[in-house]
Design a protein around this nucleic acid. Structure first.
Lengths: 219, 219
DNA sequence: TAATAAAGTTAGGTTAGTCTAAAATAATAA
DNA sequence: TTATTATTTTAGACTAACCTAACTTTATTA
């Protein structure tokens, strides 16, 4: 089935919104609209088309779900996105926070051979530069039971393996703080009243908010 | 200036049609329409928009020209196309005849850094897999005074460096005949009545039409 | 449970890019 | 030079993807 970029973006958005933090989540018109920066009325138009193509299911005034085929297509888009991010980061010296925007464009290129060969060229990577798992050709995703920085015991050290979202501002802040994939972090102290953490990175001590710590994955 | 893929395709088509065989050529509505597989009426609509953006110039019932800024944009698209073709051929094991179609999609990705880095990654290639010159970042193109197979003297040997167009059928025929970039070809004989040539490739002798020989560049 | 707020839908309109059919102009040939 | 043919333009319509404004349904809370 040949889909427009817009249709693909709706499917991908639904995939992300319905699978949050590894849990199923319910998604409505409004939420999808604000995620995609369009108006609810536009979402309605598109949902009608996607229903007709049997890629989504939703009843009048009900929540929105991807069908099996919708899900399959969405996973393939995510796969392409993450492979391209990996390519940009590993081969073209893009920084962590720059890859997302360009991968948003590249993910819509339609060529099965291109993706196969790209994956091979990158030597079958399992994770993208944000630490997210790359679905394989069959659409299978490695399940990741990931620990956040917030959950690390006081005094212990850990290694940064991913950050939760792809917001460029957040990523830039992470970089500015001196972190990158693989950075070693030691958790020194935790403020009870606001959950903020005192951490040590390369012999520098700094304080980060709970929200920050919740968005950083470590092992 | 941000252009749609369609607008970019019109500019690129005009670039190719107005610079044929190194010579300037006049292009009209009908010709552009059939090149792009749309109807003349659609071309008219688009020309209006491109005139308003000052990317093309044409008078009522007159021939169509790219303006300087239209030309600049077109060259950048050609540059991206040829760099991507090179990438697919050199790094992702695409065959000669497969690169064009995918590059048609990739050429519309908008990221100056991506192209800069891609060019660097490929080590500043001068020619694409079809032997066409890749414009540099400034839009300068190496001028190629190219010899066709038709022009080679009887008994002389030459090396295949390019083929004229990107038609997949023609490229596949070229491959089938046993030719690739760099292949050595010896011209044995020429039929006066139809211009066809008898050539030797890897100790095989075969006959090719004048049209074929006109479309194959050698040095 | 009635009133208010939030979420979702519908109707009607816009723009980009396409089309068909018909009309206008230019080019070619008798 | 007039008639025929080819090219170009115009008018009117369609679809995808969006919008605003008004309306309906569901959820929340007083």
């Amino acid at each position: 089935m040949i889909l427009s970029q817009t249709e693909e973006n709706y499917l991908k958005a639904l995939f992300h919104l319905t699978n949050r933090n590894g849990e199923q989540a319910e998604v409505g018109t409004n939420e999808l609209a604000s995620f995609l920066n369009v108006k609810p009325a536009s979402v309605n138009d598109m949902l009608k088309r996607l229903r007709e193509k049997e890629l989504v299911e939703n009843e009048r005034y009900g929540k929105i779900f991807l069908t099996n085929s919708g899900q399959k297509i969405a996973v393939q888009i995510v796969r392409k996105h993450r492979l391209w991010e990996t390519f940009l980061y590993k081969k073209l010296s893009f920084s962590w926070d720059e890859v997302h925007e360009v991968a948003e464009q590249l993910e819509h290129i339609n060529s099965p051979k291109l993706i196969e060969q790209l994956e091979k060229f990158l030597d079958y990577p399992e994770f993208d530069p944000h630490g997210d798992a790359i679905p394989n050709a069959k659409g299978e995703i490695k399940l990741q039971k990931r620990t956040t920085l917030s959950e690390v015991e006081l005094g212990k050290s850990c290694k940064l393996i991913a950050v939760k979202d792809s917001n460029a501002d957040f990523l830039q802040y992470v970089l500015k703080v001196g972190l990158e994939l693989g950075s070693k972090i030691k958790v020194l102290n935790r403020q009870e009243f606001d959950g903020s953490l005192e951490i040590e990175i390369k012999k520098n001590v700094l304080s980060v908010s709970q929200k920050f710590a919740d968005n950083v994955f470590v092992e």
